[in-house]
């Protein structure tokens, strides 16, 4: 979305379950210096009927004034598309919506909540955790499809700043002017807010976090078993080293080295496998789930792996340290 400052209701947890707030709040900001343009955005779910199977499915819809440059996608540079959006009962359909919604080619006619609708164009956005598919429409069509929702209550207000205006000062000015029934956020803040919701507040993020914790513990146990077995297999050799006069520190080092090698050798195929799983997951959602293997995550997992193997190594090294060479050979 092409905006610098966002207004949302304080009750909005994340975009798809937005609470509405008065459109007047958005208009109020226009008097503040530095605000160049304001654009109201409406969102909602509608029952989209697949014209082939005649089954309905919830589709996430964005609505806005077609003349507002709300989205940055290149498709909206086409004036014909804008004109088509302004006709009644038309929508733009997301090419990355799931195939269960049926054909997406422009000209397809189907029903939304007992009202005929025509697809007049496509764009490429993609759903997410909450939406299997998305569509966009004009605010006038939103009024038709989502009746009796009035247009004077909006879900999100977008504010574009004039060139050279400082985002922080404008945000503070808006914040000071508006009553506290709206939240004023910069673009970075609203992205962070959405991510925080999904990572922490939603059970989804918690489950993933728990998965990491559990696999860490299980991994520690498995690596401990591997190292312990290996130490048992080479017990005589460790005892020989000890009998020759090597210090415990040296044996320590050998076991830690082994653990590190194990960690690295396990990490490399694991990394490849998880990149493949990421790819699989993003294919399954037509490349729309915000999942990616980034540098930080890779290094974080590498550190976890090394920590896991080192802990296991330290636990299993006790057997060697307490070994009395005289007893091993008796």
């Amino acid at each position: 979305m092409d905006a610098d400052v966002f207004l949302v209701s304080p009750q909005t947890l994340e975009l798809s379950t937005s609470q509405s707030f008065p459109r007047d709040r958005l208009y109020q900001t226009q008097s503040i210096a530095g605000v160049a343009r304001t654009m109201p955005v409406y969102v909602g779910y509608m029952q989209w009927r697949n014209p082939e199977t005649r089954r309905s499915r919830a589709l996430f819809a964005f609505a806005f004034n077609p003349r507002d440059p709300v989205f940055l996608m290149p498709e909206f540079d086409d004036p014909g598309l804008i004109a088509a959006m302004e006709r009644p009962n038309t929508v733009l359909f997301d090419q990355r919506s799931r195939p269960e919604f049926g054909p997406q080619t422009p000209g397809t006619t189907t029903e939304v909540d007992r009202r005929q609708v025509v697809i007049v164009g496509n764009y490429t956005l993609g759903g997410g955790f909450t939406a299997d598919g998305t569509a966009m429409m004009s605010d006038q069509n939103f009024l038709r499809f989502f009746s009796p929702r009035p247009l004077d209550r909006i879900d999100m207000g977008l504010i574009q700043l004039a060139e050279g205006a400082d985002g922080e000062t404008v945000v503070q000015a808006i914040d000071a002017k508006l009553p506290n029934d709206v939240l004023v956020l910069t673009k970075d803040e609203i992205i962070a807010r959405e991510q925080r919701y999904w990572l922490i507040a939603a059970s989804l993020g918690f489950i993933f976090g728990l998965g990491v914790a559990v696999s860490f513990v299980v991994g520690t146990v498995i690596v401990y078993q591997i190292i312990y077995t290996d130490i048992s297999d080479h017990y005589a050799e460790y005892a020989t080293l000890k009998a020759m006069g090597y210090r415990n520190w040296f044996l320590f080092g050998v076991v830690i080295q082994e653990a590190l090698i194990l960690a690295l050798m396990g990490y490399i195929p694991g990394y490849v496998a998880s990149v493949a799983v990421y790819e699989l997951a993003s294919r399954a959602t037509s490349g729309t789930l915000p999942m990616s293997m980034n540098m930080g995550r890779g290094i974080f997992v590498l550190v976890l792996t090394i920590a896991m193997c080192s802990i296991s190594g330290l636990i299993s090294v006790r057997k060697v340290i307490t070994a009395d060479p005289a007893e091993v050979f008796s």
Partner: peptide, 13 residues
């Protein structure tokens, strides 16, 4: 002390 002693084992080790 161990460093001052040479060990030869029954199994060569």
């Amino acid at each position: 002390v161990r460093r001052g002693i040479g060990f030869i084992f029954q199994a060569h080790n």
